[in-house]
Amino acid sequence: MAITVHIPPPLRPYAEGTDKIAITPADAGTVGQALKVLVTKHPGLNDRMYTNGQLRPFVNVYLNNEDVRFLDGEFEAPIKDGDDVAIIPAVGGG
């Protein structure tokens, strides 16, 4: 079992089409570190997810479907095997 980081469809063009990556607790111990592994692996995501080092305000990150902004430690929240990290941006169309 690993930690899965899900990449939403609108961001996949900046991640070589990848829909998710699997990382191990040895790679990342917190949500923030998991995101760092992701953007290191797919540098094109950096600009799409961050501005001035902050997550863009229309991009949310959820750990096991809970908003990371309101977890204890926020992006320092610890992660473990089996955890699910999802990046979900606002959707404009309709």
């Binding site: 609108p10 863009r56 305000p57 229309f58 949310n60 941006p89 606002a90 404009g92 169309g93 309709g94």
Partner: peptide, 27 residues
Amino acid sequence: VFEAAPGPGEAATCDSAGVLSPIISII
């Protein structure tokens, strides 16, 4: 939930990325 809207050009639109009819009906 989403603090602010994406700026111009920051998010895809249905005209740029397309959209399937079934997901419209579902949502």
